[in-house]
């Protein structure tokens, strides 16, 4: 336990070891630790950001889904209304056409009736004239009695 020159050797050894640790051991180790800490912190931040982005995307998706649904609903309602309208229009057109056909048929019938009537009249007039001829036993000038025959026709 005597103090001797070993003291200097120990002191110098101590300094050499400290210098070695200071220069070659400590910096790489502490750098690696600090760098890893930073990486972990960055990773945690990124995870947090990702979570936020996910929530945002979910919210966006939901709102666009809702929009699409609304739009589809509107389109459906529109098309239904449109279809109804077309049907109504078609109905109206068909009715008009039918009315027109009926009216024209009636008119034709009336014409036919009138024609038949006028033919009948002429035949009756001719019959009457021939009857009168027979009665009078004498030829009657058709031209001379045209007025009278016309009046007769009108009376029929």
């Amino acid at each position: 336990m005597n103090i001797n020159a070993t003291l200097f050797v120990s002191g110098i050894t101590f300094f050499l070891f400290v210098l070695f640790c200071w220069k070659f051991i400590w910096p790489p180790l502490i750098n690696a630790i600090d760098e890893r800490n930073k990486k972990i912190a960055d990773g945690l931040n990124a995870a947090e950001e990702g979570k936020k982005a996910l929530v945002e995307a979910e919210r966006k998706g939901e709102s666009s889904m809702k929009e699409a649904r609304d739009r589809a609903q509107t389109l459906l309602a529109d098309s239904e209304r449109r279809a109804n309208q077309i049907v109504e229009e078609a109905k109206a057109a068909a009715k008009t056409e039918a009315d027109r056909i009926v009216a024209s048929a009636q008119e034709q019938i009336e014409q036919e009736i009138n024609k038949a009537k006028s033919q009948l009249r002429e035949q009756v007039a001719a019959l009457a004239v021939s009857g009168a001829e027979k009665i009078l036993k004498k030829e009657i000038d058709a031209k001379a009695h045209a007025d009278m025959l016309g009046q007769l026709k009108a009376q029929l």
């Binding site: 070659f24 051991i25 910096p27 790489p28 690696a32 630790i33």
Partner: peptide, 19 residues
Amino acid sequence: LGIIGLGLFWLVANKATSG
């Protein structure tokens, strides 16, 4: 002992990874 102790640290420090 100093060389063994610091040597172990030095070995690790030499190939220290931040991974």
